[in-house]
Design a protein around this nucleic acid. Sequence first.
DNA 1: ATATGTTTTGACCATATGGTTGACTTATAG
DNA 2: CTATAAGTCAACCATATGGTCAAAACATAT
Lengths: 205, 205
Amino acid sequence: MSDQLEQPSQTEQKIFEAARHIFQRKGLEGARMQEIADNADIHKSMLHYYYRSKEALFQKVYQLSIMKVMPEIVNLLNEEVSLELKIRKFVVKYIETIQANPDIPLFILHELNKDPNRLKQFIMGQVGKKVEPFLEELRQAAKEGRIVDMPPEQILVNILSLTVFPFIGRPVIQMILGYEGKDFDRFIEERRLLLPDYVINSILK
Amino acid sequence: MSDQLEQPSQTEQKIFEAARHIFQRKGLEGARMQEIADNADIHKSMLHYYYRSKEALFQKVYQLSIMKVMPEIVNLLNEEVSLELKIRKFVVKYIETIQANPDIPLFILHELNKDPNRLKQFIMGQVGKKVEPFLEELRQAAKEGRIVDMPPEQILVNILSLTVFPFIGRPVIQMILGYEGKDFDRFIEERRLLLPDYVINSILK
DNA sequence: ATATGTTTTGACCATATGGTTGACTTATAG
DNA sequence: CTATAAGTCAACCATATGGTCAAAACATAT
């Protein structure tokens, strides 16, 4: 059954999916190996058979989670299109990315907050440098009077905030706005359509 | 030494402060009772002497954390001033509130995400109803053409996002922008001054 | 000074939890 | 069919961790 491409076995996949779900929701310490096993509907020993330890399993989930959302920031901000279109596409695409993985942002931020050094170097170099061109682009646009005069770092954080926060703040938003059932999904749907205009209008002069 | 006002003893306070710090950074499961004790520089048994259990101690920290930031939303949005001034004051004051308790938002959101029911009723009624007037105010302003035409819920979330996210996303922001030392504090300082204008300009027509 | 109540300490307990090990089962190959 | 390897299971282990308890230390009042 083993392909040349070394496909992970079905149980291995089931384990990983369950681990991803549990870890992303509850964090490293909040997750129980037994719970992951139950969730994957396999015996607990299998977790250690396929992944050495809890730490190792967590590490895989953690890394994959980061890979799912961090490079997006870089890629989308480095596309070869006009500033306006770039921002529009970023907002929409990033919302869609997170919509498909809504637990990741809070997960990463919580883990990162516990131990900021965990992947400092891992990303620091990668992402940091690649965002600079976008900042420069904003700086240039500001100099030419095409956009509002504001430090580009603030603008970038504005865009990120407006895009990412709703997912992180979901429970509070639901609470405050009295959302139930599919209400929140509709809210996000609406937002995906409105936000690009809002962001652009708030930046362009 | 016990006043009429039943002041908590000094050790009790030390415990609570340490617990607050550890719980807010690491969450319920991430925190170790021993760690809290060490941090407070007292014997572990004291934790149980003053607070029955880990759960009880956590509960106090959790509730106090919520009380520090949730009612603010309501109060600041219900002040009797013009819409513009209200929003301006909200942004500034809320940033200041969180600046004084920077760990609270992520803490609450993480715990809430693990168990959304934990305080559903506790807040649901309290905050939910009290935000409605502000939404209505936005609705009215939109109808009169004074502000941009956008669902008020989206506007409220925009304001919250722009205000709160930078604190939650701190590690990522530091990473992306290459901030070190006091850089981030300066960034927040700058933001407190810029954001009110930005928010208002993005909403008013 | 003695008694009474409060605070602190250190030794100890019970259990949850991550992890191991060896036997059993199933698949794969010769 | 047999042998070898891969996968699965159940019982068990070691330890971390929340929690208890009785005795000591300290404070306070009579």
